[in-house]
């Protein structure tokens, strides 16, 4: 997360987005950011929060078992009902 080349929020992993959101909140709370910069910071924070929330909402469970060919290589998947 290098500051000069601000990475786009969409490309970030959940963990990166989380860490940056925390640092954004810290900066805002410290209150030593210029007003116009704090608005931009807030916008970025809101985007990061949305990114995290989307990831959290996308909590879908999908379980599949790999199907193997005779040589033991993966060829596809089949639903797995492990109960």
């Amino acid at each position: 997360m290098s500051e000069p080349t601000v990475p786009s929020v969409e490309e970030m992993s959940f963990e990166q987005a989380m860490r940056e959101l925390e640092s954004v909140v810290d900066q805002l709370e410290r209150g030593d950011v210029a007003l116009d910069a704090s608005i931009a910071l807030y916008e970025r924070g809101a985007a990061l929060k949305k990114r995290c929330e989307d990831e959290l909402k996308r909590a879908e469970e999908k379980v599949a078992a790999i199907t193997l060919d005779a040589g033991g290589a993966a060829v596809g998947t089949q639903p797995l009902d492990a109960g």
Partner: peptide, 21 residues
């Protein structure tokens, strides 16, 4: 927990910026 954390961050974010103003 993460959702709660995210909510809390959102609240801090809003509070932080309104506090700045």
């Amino acid at each position: 927990e993460l959702m709660a954390w995210s909510e809390a961050q959102g609240a801090r974010l809003t509070r932080g910026v309104s506090q700045a103003v």
